[in-house]
């Protein structure tokens, strides 16, 4: 590990210690929630601006915002479970004590977030939407698996953060949802900083040794991972729960719409620009 990562890890550890909290008392979850509320910003709702959206009453739109939030929080539960597995495997796996220290805080904070997201879903929706992702074993070039683990963390967290920041700042959104989003953003700011540095460092260390084919495969993987991550934001389970007609067709139609593409481009711009700046990708791509 480079000195840069060590230095960043040390600073982030100090900040994590300063901001340490008890997750079981930090956020109060009322017994019930009135679904006649905005649970996320309307503009973040997958079908926002579509003819299906226009056909809904205000109350139906708010109910949809509830199920969209359950989906968003479910994605976070699944994403953080994978993240915790990956981070745990990396504990004491390098010679940098500062990085190991910070990974302990990273794990602690992700576990807290998962508790918030999971509690909301289970308590108010009675479920967590299932994960449709499957991972199959394959062989990797040296450093490739490590790099791909952190690129997945990066893509997942950067998109999530866009949603967190937007919902947390939106005064239309009900207090509990704003609080969960704001709290997540606050901790994620450190995780994003760590992820960016480690990603750049891993790429600089390993990519010069990769074959042209491996590098092209890594770049293709990044693009596909963005697409897969985004696809999860258009979940037919939401539309089924809302009783919307032809939920699977609605997923395809919405995902391919110009409005949705523009939204994905906006929400992904900062992370793509960072990857381009680090020469991890050659050009920004359409999502």
């Amino acid at each position: 590990m480079s000195q840069d990562i060590s230095k960043v890890a040390k600073i982030l550890t100090a900040q994590s210690i300063k901001g340490f909290y008890n997750p079981f008392t930090h956020i109060k979850f009322p017994e019930t929630l009135d679904r006649r509320n905005w649970f996320t910003s309307p503009e973040l709702i997958s079908i926002y601006g579509s003819s299906e959206w226009e056909a809904l009453s205000e109350e139906q739109r708010q109910t949809l915002s509830f199920f969209e939030t359950v989906n968003f929080f479910s994605l976070n539960v699944h994403g953080e479970k994978s993240l915790l597995e990956g981070l745990s495997r990396r504990l004491y796996d390098n010679n940098d004590a500062d990085v190991t220290d910070y990974i302990h805080h990273f794990i602690d904070e992700e576990n807290k977030h998962m508790y918030f997201f999971g509690t909301f879903c289970e308590k108010y929706a009675g479920k967590i939407y299932p994960d449709r992702k499957l991972i199959f074993p394959r062989e990797y070039a040296e450093g490739e698996e490590e790099f791909l683990f952190f690129i997945k963390v990066f893509v997942f967290e950067e998109i999530v953060d866009y949603y967190n920041v937007t919902a947390a700042r939106d005064e239309r959104v009900m207090a509990l949802s704003r609080e969960i989003n704001a709290n997540h953003h606050e901790d994620e700011a450190r995780h994003l900083a760590f992820g960016r540095v480690i990603l750049n460092n891993l790429f600089k260390t390993y990519s010069p040794q990769w074959s042209t084919e491996t590098l092209a495969g890594v770049r293709e993987y990044i693009k596909n991972y963005y697409m897969t991550t985004w696809r999860e934001y258009y979940n037919p389970d939401i539309y089924i729960d809302m009783g919307l007609a032809h939920p699977y067709d609605l997923v395809s139609r919405t995902f391919e719409s110009t409005k949705a593409k523009e939204h994905r481009a906006t929400a992904s711009r900062a992370s793509l620009n960072y990857l381009k700046k680090c020469r991890i990708i050659e050009e920004n791509f359409e999502l």
Partner: peptide, 20 residues
């Protein structure tokens, strides 16, 4: 196909079968 295609494939098959 990669792991990343499979999520989309599952959705496609669910759509064809009409069940989750």
């Amino acid at each position: 196909l990669s792991s990343l295609h499979v999520m989309e494939l599952i959705l496609e098959v669910e759509k064809m079968k009409g069940t989750r």
